[in-house]
């Protein structure tokens, strides 16, 4: 887009955008080959005890509506293209949270023949949440860290 606004206006507009983004990021969840453990913990974060929605974060079905991609598991050869496609479908600016040890390094599945490797080998990752699986608190902390980094 052409940047034709005067500098102070542009700055104000950017501030408003960031404010809107931080207060209500919509997340999409994709399992690129995980064992389910991280997925059920992500689902647990939106249920009453942890309640991620109090931060304005909502799990969303379509990649076209999402700001944050929460990705679990090592990337299998089958799901590699699909993961890249989901990432491409998301509108800019977009952020990726890799949940679980396998998303970081391949984890327990390191060396299995159908594993491409970590998520960062396919798409750029902003926040890593380690653990096998990470506790729901850790996942919330990871997303909160992402929001914190956006403020800067």
């Amino acid at each position: 887009m052409e940047n034709s606004l005067p500098a102070p206006w542009q700055k104000a507009l950017d501030q408003i955008k960031t404010w809107a983004r931080i207060n209500s990021p919509w997340a999409i969840h994709y399992n690129s080959g995980s064992c389910n453990g991280c997925d059920i913990e992500i689902l647990a974060t939106i249920t009453p005890r942890y309640d991620l929605e109090r931060f304005g974060i909502k799990l969303q079905g379509s990649p076209r509506h999402a700001d944050v991609l929460i990705c679990t598991g090592p990337v299998t050869r089958q799901s590699r293209d699909r993961l890249r496609r989901i990432y491409d479908q998301m509108p800019d600016p977009k952020f990726v949270v890799a949940v679980g040890s396998c998303g970081i390094s391949g984890g327990a599945f390191h060396g299995c023949y159908n594993i491409v490797g970590s998520i960062s080998e396919v798409i750029p990752v902003d926040v890593y949440v380690p653990g096998c699986p990470p506790r729901p608190e850790a996942i919330i902390f990871g997303v909160a860290q992402l929001l914190e980094s956006l403020k800067k």
């Binding site: 690129s32 699909r82 599945f109 299995c112």
Partner: peptide
């Protein structure tokens, strides 16, 4: 989509490691 090759992977690990996998 979630086929990771666990059965083959278990053959390259010791009995104790295979259980972890």
């Amino acid at each position: 989509y979630v086929h990771r090759g666990i059965e083959k992977g278990a053959e390259t690990r010791s009995w104790i490691q295979a259980m972890y996998l």
